[in-house]
Each structure stands twice: as C-alpha cells, then as structure tokens.
Amino acid sequence: MRGHTHQEFETELRNLKDRLLAMGGRCEHMIADAIRAFEERDEALAREVIEADRSMDDDEVLVDEQAVRILALRQPVGRDLRFAVAAVKASTDLERIGDEAVNIAERAIEMEPTDRLSLPGSKLPEMAGRAGAMLRNALNAFVEEDASKARHVFQHDDAVDDLYTEVMGLCLDYMKDPSRIADGMRICNCAKYLERIADHATNIAEMVIFMVEGRDVRHGKG
C-alpha cells in the first residue's frame, strides 16, 4: 500500500510501530535474562530484569499517548484505525509480559542456592524458549503485517500449555519432600508466568490478524 499524502501522519504511524517493536524486543530480552537468572541463580541479572521493567511501563504509557493522539488528530480509518487500536491493546500485553519476566526474576532471587536445577526447574528454559519464540513470531507477523504468520503463533500455544501441565506434575512429585515445597512452589509459579507470557503473545498475534484482515478472532471467533 502506498504512503500517506500527509508525510507527518506517515511518520507518526511509523514512530508508534517502532516504539511497539522496541518494547517487544525488550520483552524478549527480559524473558531470556529472567530465565537465565533463574537457571544460574544470578541475582544481579535478576535485578537488571526488574530494573528494565520501568522503561516497559513508561513505553506502555507513551504508546497509548501516541495512539490516542493519532485517533484524535488524524481520525484514522480502515487499516490505520485498526493499527492504532491494535497498538493500544498490544502495548498492554507487552507491558504484562514485562511484569511476568519480573515475577520470574523475583522468584529467581528467592530460590534456595543450589548447584544445579531440579528436574521440574530444568523444564523452564524450554518453556521460556517456546514462549519467547511465540512472542518473536507474533512481533515478526506484526512487522510484516502477515496474518498467516500470526496464525502460526496459535499452534505453539498448545505446546506451552502441555509443558506447563508436565512441570506441574513434576513439581507435585518434587514437593513430596517437605523441604522442597518453597522452591517447588516457585517453580510452579514460574511455569505459570511463562504460560501467561505465551497467552499474551497469542493476544498480540490475534491483534495482528485484526490489523491485517479486520477480523476479530479472539475467543475462538473467526
């Protein structure tokens, strides 16, 4: 599609998109760092993740401000309108992904110091890898405005859900020893955070489909 006659409007849309993508990129790093902090019991890295979340919160507010400004001053229609709406919704999902990464980092700090990961804990990096890939794919679909790529994201959500169920089962066994209950609960929680991250990535993919096709596929529609 050709560019807008109003170059300034074109620039505003591009700036909004760039800010969202920057948020997305930071989210990916936060997830990867949080899970590495968990694996390696690296408290300093965990604190970096917590610190990084501040800029995520600021970005969410800025994205909303930019989108509201575009809605008020440019009165976008068609795909531009859908983009502005999708941006507001996606920024909320990205901010919450940041919050989940912070939760993982906090649990990492709380974990008992041990030399190696327990069996249920060892599953978390795989979950994080899959959830992170879902986010990356959703963001790529957003950049390329590719609805079919966005649809691929949904398929991976089931794998993350399966891993979540598996970790829960492993944790139950792990916590049969009462001394492990505290760490076992932390691992369960981290698995839940990662499962939520995958859900947020799915939400973003749904927004990409709305933006590209004008179809609302949330809650099994479309």
């Binding site: 599609m1 050709r2 560019g3 807008h4 006659t5 109003h6 409007f9 976008p76 229609v77 068609g78 795909r79 531009d80 309108l81 859908r82 096709e213 004008g214 179809r215």
Partner: peptide, 18 residues
C-alpha cells in the same frame, strides 16, 4: 471505514491519495 474490501478504497479513505 473499518475494513473496506478494496485496496483503492482503503488508500483513498485513509488519505493515501485523492
């Protein structure tokens, strides 16, 4: 104004030409 079927409609209503 939300999801026109034709690309030219989209381009016109969103201020890309005209």
């Amino acid at each position: 104004f939300t999801r026109p079927a034709k690309k030219r409609t989209e381009e016109y209503i969103s201020g890309r030409f005209g």
